[in-house]
Design a protein around this nucleic acid. Structure first.
Length: 264
DNA sequence: TAAATTTGACCTCC
DNA sequence: GGAGGTCAAATTTA
């Protein structure tokens, strides 16, 4: 890895790029597969969900540790893990961690601490046609028209935010149609693509996205949530009852794999 | 009637 | 001061 990291001067961005890419693709694969498991025997679906969470968690852990090593060796921060850099501001000494902010919020829920900025480097984004199919239950808490964007950004937090103090949040935003898409994509069109950005981990799960924990509790909840999501989604992004696999596969088309960067 | 969503206001950051 | 993120009262829905 040292050899690779020393490429292009320091090469650190290549490795981190690959990690980010892996993270992104895993999220996309998760979104792709979870709906297909709907109705599948619970045990198999449980295991699949757990495996996804574990692999993603493993990836996040490796990326974090790698980033720490790079910080020590280069003395400068590496690029953000999130794709949407406008949403993730650079860390500052004053920027508390996600967990630190949690404590502050619990102490003074209506104080100045109520406004949180997205400094979490563990945010990850993906592009999907079915932004609700991610295995979790979300509650919408806001909508904002973003400057210059055609579609508003929707803000969701975990449905267990209060009940289990789960700080996971996500934003969804319908992508602007490209030249190729303009003929087919309209508001609410099921072929529309959405950029989904996730922040934080689900602490509502016993194991969150971590490794080596028993899957039973969290995964059964995932399945339950997935069913609820499929039944109760109320936003524009209504998931199709019968999922269009080609449409889902198109998600992957939006970010072709660059195999050169995968050679670490 | 409880739960979920909408939406305008407020707050923080740049 | 503008943009983005969150809160919370009002409204809608099941």
């Amino acid at each position: 890895m040292d050899r690779k990291m020393s490429r292009d001067g320091d090469g650190s961005e290549t490795v981190m790029d690959a990690m980010r890419r892996q993270q992104e693709l895993l999220m996309q694969l998760r979104v792709l597969v979870l709906p297909l498991l709907h109705g599948v025997h619970d045990t198999s679906a449980d295991i699949a969900v757990q495996l996804f969470d574990d692999v993603i968690g493993c990836n996040i852990t490796v990326a974090s540790k790698l980033e720490g090593c790079l910080l020590m060796s280069t003395g400068r921060p590496v690029v953000e893990l999130a794709d949407d850099k406008s949403l993730v501001r650079k860390s500052t000494p004053a920027a508390a961690s996600c967990c630190d902010r949690t404590e502050q919020q619990q102490e003074k829920p209506n104080s100045a601490a109520q406004k949180r900025r997205r400094n979490d480097k563990r945010s990850r984004s993906l592009v999907t046609h079915v932004p609700h199919y991610d295995g979790y239950q979300w509650r919408k808490y806001g909508q904002k028209n973003i400057n210059g964007r055609q579609h508003p950004r929707n803000y969701y937090r975990c449905a267990y935010y209060r009940e289990r103090n789960c700080l996971a949040t996500k934003t969804t935003e319908q992508q602007e149609p490209t030249n190729d898409d303009t003929s087919t994509i309209m508001a609410g069109d099921e072929t529309a693509k959405y950029t989904v950005v996730y922040y934080g981990d689900h602490t509502c799960k016993d194991h969150s996205i971590s490794m080596g924990q028993p899957p039973q509790v969290a995964t059964s909840m995932d399945l339950q949530n997935r069913e609820i999501m499929a039944q109760t989604s109320t936003d524009v992004q209504e998931p199709e009852p019968d999922l269009d696999l080609p449409a889902l596969l198109e998600v992957l088309d939006s970010s072709p794999i660059d195999w050169d960067n995968w050679k670490i």
